[in-house]
Design a protein around this nucleic acid. Structure first.
Lengths: 362, 362
DNA sequence: CTGTAGGCTCCCGGCCGACAA
DNA sequence: TTGTCGGCCGGGAGCCTACAG
């Protein structure tokens, strides 16, 4: 297996040498990132990371809508967290649903030096290029067969090529590519009273082709070459409990643990998939991030914290919260795992968010 | 976990207590069997079976279109075949694709007595009730939006309720339920010059709802209560490589082996899924069938054999063949597994079938 | 500024028999 | 016996403006 160790700068690779997709099309990293959302941060290839089998297991449970059973055997030699080199990160999108996910090849290592920590820290500080984009949640009118897509004025002016306003009405043909490099063309027209931007011809093909419904979101970005790209974010529907007809969830969880245990015992590489929108758990953490969380700032009851949330318009928003409890979720199986320490943040924060909403605050 | 040990007679249970499907609808066993095809024979719940981890692994590889990697660790304590009690067999159908599959709960046992062998043998000899049905491969005209479905004359007369021929033209409304108990209604009319049976109104909804294309098959059966049921069999398209975004194929294969090894070590139950149309490998074999194959008739080079094949019209057809080679596929990992002995039959037979076709024989 | 509804047009979904394989 | 085609009719997909939140 190839093990390209890149510098800290190349934190996103679009190479597609993984299993699954047959097409050779290279996923556009900017589009992938935009579809994944602003909160998703992939570790950089070639840097050190900490892998949490427990968190990995949780993601599979979430995507199958099934809790972890008690039938799973213990792997006494498998630690709750594995220090690894991240050999490669490749970006993917489900050909059916356009769901974005990443494939990571990890190799357990026994120790790290100061330089590794420094590189991990550096890679986190690389600013992602702020791609120009807009994202709109589809209305009933947008998805009905009766009409087209109403483009928010600011969005059209920021992202779309400028119209020739000498035409009556001003109109042009837009060409945009999706994650699979499929080309979609739309008639973009500026008309009506009051005037507005609309996508008409071609829009309904896109809606039916992607099986979009009101509540789903569509996003357009303009890449560095001024090319128009588009992607989707589906509303949180029930997981399609994929793959439940192939492998029992028990076998899946055992497979995760056994694969990690085998890799740890042999220091051999192994492969995981990370679905940023399937579950909130980031189970592959940059070494520097882990180090800071554990060493520098001790977590204690009553401590206050800030947390980012993704808003509907795909911006970010900060909320304050307080830690109300700290415990290991499964202290028998995972001694001193620190996994739930991180989780406590999220749960508590969602809870305070709910309280704030109930209280009518904003 | 419940472990209902039924008599040999109840070889198909429609109980749905498995994971995956949320709906409580009970799968009709006759319809499931018809969709699975005439060659599929599920072992009876409560009887003894032999489980082949290697064959199970092959099914997963087939449904993911990925060969087994060499990264898989050895499980020195896992035998190539496990004697098990089959606690339960539940029938399922994928809610998206209607693909049929079965969930089986197995429990390794260390030995069996004469009565167990007898029961296994008896359960195999239970004749399945020969359900009245017909199956037709859809033509371009059947699936085009331009028209309806042309029903073969014999099929209509055998399966559909008789028309009132005093009407001009004779017509009626057909109501049929699918595997998910969804109701489909069609206008059945007998018209044209020459006269023929057609399904018109309602047909296109069915085609688009099930996403059928020319080459796929549709089948109608009449159950014991004279109710009309219908199902589909999709043409062999490339596997939709389900679930490749959830778990790496390595982890899946490890999961299968580790789950089996764990169950064997503890004599604890485990769960497998069997997709009859995803791969030809039956990896859960009735004890009696295994016993006969291994003990009574020794297999040798040059031996001639007969084999059943499924024809397009879902009948069966016999072909003759000769065994040209016997070997273990992976004799290092699976010592004396006998798995490929069975496989040799199939490969050789397909090969001779190809030769026959190339030679213009029929 | 933008979501929804009403109006209008015309394309294609869908029912028919003709014809030939 | 049955697959495909040309004919044809009508409903709805799809483009437009009006209006209101």
């Amino acid at each position: 297996m190839k093990a390209p160790v890149n510098g800290a700068g190349s934190n996103l690779t679009g190479d597609n040498n993984g299993e699954g997709d047959e097409k050779k099309s290279v996923i556009n990293p900017e589009l992938w990132q935009t579809c994944a959302g602003p909160l998703v941060n992939l570790p950089a290839a070639g840097t050190h990371v900490v892998y949490f089998p427990q968190g990995h297991s949780e993601q599979v449970a979430a995507s199958m809508k099934k809790d972890v059973d008690s039938q799973i055997p213990n792997y006494p030699n498998l630690q709750s967290k594995l220090l690894c080199i991240l050999h490669s990160v490749t970006l993917h999108a489900d050909p059916e649903t356009d769901e974005v996910y990443a494939q990571m090849t990890l190799q357990p290592v026994s120790s790290f030096d100061k330089e590794a920590l420094l590189r991990s820290d550096l890679s986190m500080k690389i600013n992602k290029p702020q791609t120009q984009f807009f994202c709109k949640t589809l209305t009933a009118s947008d998805t009905s067969t009766h009409g087209g897509f109403s483009v928010p004025r600011r969005a059209a002016e920021k992202i779309f090529p400028p119209l020739d306003f000498s035409m009556q009405p001003p109109a042009q043909e837009l060409v945009a590519r999706d994650l699979h490099d499929t080309v979609w063309t739309f008639r973009h027209i500026y008309r009506g009273q009051p005037k507005r931007h609309l996508l008409t011809t071609g829009w309904s093909l896109f809606v039916s082709g992607k099986r979009l419904f009101a509540g789903d979101s569509v996003l357009f970005i303009r890449d560095e070459n001024q090319q128009l790209l588009l992607g989707i974010r589906r509303a949180n529907r029930q997981p399609t409990n994929l793959s439940s007809s192939v492998l029992s969830s028990d076998s899946m969880h055992i497979g995760i643990l056994a694969a990690a245990a085998h890799a740890a015992a042999n220091n051999s590489p192994f492969t995981v998939f990370y679905n940023p929108r399937a579950s909130p758990s980031e189970f592959v953490i940059p070494l520097a991030k882990y180090y800071k969380a554990v060493c520098s700032s001790q977590i204690s009851l009553g401590m206050r914290f800030r947390m980012m949330f993704e808003t509907e318009e795909s911006g970010t928003r900060r909320y304050m919260g307080t830690i109300t409890g700290i415990s290991d979720l499964d202290s028998v199986r995972w001694k001193n795992s620190q996994w739930r320490n991180l989780q406590v943040f999220i749960l508590d924060c969602v809870f305070s968010l709910v309280l704030a909403k109930m209280g009518g605050l904003k």
